[in-house]
Amino acid sequence: MSMLRRFGYRYASFLVFILMVIVWEGACDLLKVPPYILPAPSAIAKAFTTLPLQRWLQHSWATIEVALLGFIMATIIAVPLAIAITRSKLASRIIMPWLIVIQSTPIVAIAPIIVVTLGAGTFPRVVITTLISFFPIVVSTATGLASVPEEYTELSRSLRAPQSREYWQIRMPYTLPYIFSALRVAITLSIVGAVVAEFVAAEHGLGYLILFSTSSFKIATAFAALMLLIMSSLLLYGALTVLQRRLFPWSEQRN
């Protein structure tokens, strides 16, 4: 493989991104697309200078904070639920219908009710984020726990290992790749959840900034906030990958 091809292969996604930006800029310029409909990338870049860096960081952190809290809460709730579902058929019969009900409920529609019920502040936003992001963690963790090969569990039982040990030393390690796959989906959903919550009630955050900017027809600023949202999502996704690589390198290889 020539050096150029190797470079192209390594940075393929970045090169496609650059190409898209060039096409976008050129199309806006050639077709004279009004900035209030679709701003050019150069206008979006300029929009970053309209606010002090501190304000951008303040909005970004407000969203990331809610996303992270919602994600942690979702994980804390989802993993024990998945264990309960796989351990007991009765628990599964009781919990599963509720999970499907929650997942089928459009959280966007009930978000205003959650805000009114739970009051002002960060908590209702965290709850909305949790509701949006916890389902994939439950399903994927439960699938992982149920797919442990029988011979492993039989060996454990033949050695008279207690069930807790079977879970901690066999089922959970086996399920880790499933859990991390779900966590990666959930972390991106938690950003979506934080934005949904900010659309309903917030004074800060990138979702709030998008709403504020579009209401005053500053579409370039809204796009700039959107870019930061995407970057935040990529950053959190990457952080999870690094975490898995550092703490459980073997699970990533298997994954």
Binding site: V116, G119, E203, F212
Partner: peptide, 18 residues
């Protein structure tokens, strides 16, 4: 100051004690 999302939302937030 809390920004709102419409008059009905504002009335609801005041009524609910937020």
């Amino acid at each position: 100051i809390r920004p709102g999302r419409g008059s009905s939302d504002a009335v609801t937030q005041i009524a609910s004690g937020n």
